[in-house]
Amino acid sequence: MIKLAEHRVFSDSFKPLYNQGMGLVEEAAEYLDGDGRAAAKRLSRLGANLYAAESMRLTTRLMQLASWLLLQRAANAGEMTREQVAAEKSKVRLDTSSPQEEADGWFDLPEAFRDLVVRSLRLQDLVRRMDEEIYGSERGEEAELDFGSSNPVFDQITLLKTAFGHR
C-alpha cells in the first residue's frame, strides 16, 4: 500500500510544504517583532492578556512544526535514517491548541495575528495527519488493539495465526 503522505515527505514534493512552513515561521516572527508588537500596545487589558498567551502558543506551535519539517528534510536528504527521525520526532509535539473564537476578546485581536494563528493551526493539522500516516500514532495503535480484542473476526484471525505459527 502506498502512503501518500510518506511519498510527499520523502520526495521532491516535500519542498513546497517545507517552504510553506518555514515561510510561516518567518512571517510570524516578523509580525510579532514589528506590527504585532505595536498592535498589542493598543489592546485592552483582556486583549493584551489573550494576545500574550496566544502569541506564546503560536510561537510554540511554529517551533514544533519547524522541528518536524527539519527532521523530515534531513531524512529526505539522507542525513538521517527514518528510524533516527522517528526517535527524534517523538520529542516534537503537534498538539498545541488555541481557543480561537471561544476566547473572550478573540475578535479584538488584530486580524493579521488571528490569520497567523488560523494558518498555523491548519498547517499543524496537515502535518499531524501526515505524521500519523507515516509513523503511526500510539493512540491509533491502542485503538486498534482495543478494537481487535472486541472483534470476533480479529480474534479468529489471531487464533489461526497462532495455530499456524504466523505471529
Rank of each mutant, 00 (worst) to 15 (best):
F147N: 07
D155C: 11
L109N: 09
L24T: 11
S55D: 08
D12F: 06
T60I: 09
Q72A: 04
I157V: 15
S149Q: 08
V127P: 03
D12V: 05
S13E: 12
L94Q: 13
L159R: 15
S11A: 12
S120F: 01
A143K: 10
Q20G: 01
F154W: 10
L123W: 00
Q72S: 00
L50G: 01
S44G: 02
E144T: 12
A77S: 11
T158I: 09
A75W: 03
D35N: 10
E141A: 15
L62Q: 14
D131C: 06
Y31F: 14
R37P: 00
D95C: 14
D131T: 10
G23Y: 05
P110I: 04
G105D: 03
G165S: 13
D108F: 02
G36M: 08
R37Q: 09
R37T: 04
R119E: 04
E88W: 10
F14L: 07
D108Y: 02
L159Q: 14
A86L: 10
G165K: 12
A77M: 11
P99H: 00
L116T: 11
G23Q: 05
R42C: 02
E102P: 01
H166G: 02
M22N: 14
E79F: 08
A48I: 01
S137C: 08
E111G: 01
D131Q: 09
Y51T: 09
A74N: 01
M63K: 14
K161S: 15
Q64T: 02
S120M: 01
A52L: 10
Y31G: 05
E144V: 12
S98C: 09
R128W: 06
F107C: 01
Q100D: 06
D12I: 05
D115E: 10
V85N: 05
A66M: 06
E141I: 13
R122K: 06
S149R: 09
R167P: 00
L69D: 00
A75M: 06
T60W: 10
G23F: 03
V85C: 02
S11P: 11
S44V: 05
F10P: 02
R93S: 15
L24K: 13
A103I: 04
P110E: 06
N19G: 04
E138C: 01
A39G: 07
Q20R: 06
L71M: 02
G21Q: 00
L109T: 07
D155H: 13
E141K: 15
L145K: 13
L24E: 12
E101A: 15
L17Y: 12
R139A: 15
H166T: 09
E111P: 01
T162V: 08
A75N: 01
R73M: 03
A52I: 05
N151F: 08
R122G: 03
G34W: 07
A52N: 12
Q72E: 09
T59Y: 02
E27S: 15
D33I: 03
R8Q: 14
L24V: 13
L160E: 12
Q84T: 06
A66R: 14
F14E: 01
G148M: 03
I134P: 06
L121H: 04
D131S: 15
A38D: 13
R73E: 10
P110W: 06
N151G: 08
G21V: 04
L116W: 11
N19A: 12
L145W: 10
A40Y: 12
R167V: 08
E138Q: 07
Q100Y: 04
F113G: 04
N49Q: 02
Q100C: 11
K3R: 06
V25T: 13
W106F: 13
L46W: 03
A143S: 07
P110M: 03
V25D: 09
D146P: 03
I157P: 05
